[in-house]
Amino acid sequence: MASTTDTPVETLALDITVDFSGGLEMLFSDQKRHSLSIPAIDNHGQPSTIAFLIDYLCKNTMKDPRAELFVLDEHIRPGILVLINDADWELEGEETYEIQAGDNILFVSTLHGARYYLLGFTPTYPEGKEVASGGIQTTVQDTAQA
């Protein structure tokens, strides 16, 4: 049974680089670049896709417990761009893109400015004074303005 010389397909790996930017690196040990060897085939025997990679990253690479800063309802959360070899993943088939050896996948949190946002999320200020900010009445105190 063990006589086959072919490498079992399950053990094939793809060497890729995964980059995090715009603050997302904080969820991945503060490391912007990760060189990874991921399985070429997913649990269902299909070629590994971006959807598989996102799940793989959550299970294997992310040390921070705040997975909701990266995925929501099993999809990448709004406000994160996914770039496949420096091209918006929409140009490449989004989650269904089949990962190739040598690919560079970049996850970048979109920036909208320093006010209210760190890692792209909105803090709310319970005790702040009312100020007009871009016509948006909200409570805010001293903030860094872009």
Binding site: G23, L69, T110, F121
Partner: peptide, 18 residues
């Protein structure tokens, strides 16, 4: 940027700095 990031899941009350 079809949707803004969701609210309420802030990382820190500290200012991000620039």
């Amino acid at each position: 940027f079809k949707k803004p990031p969701p609210a309420g899941a802030m990382l820190s009350c500290g200012e991000a700095g620039i």
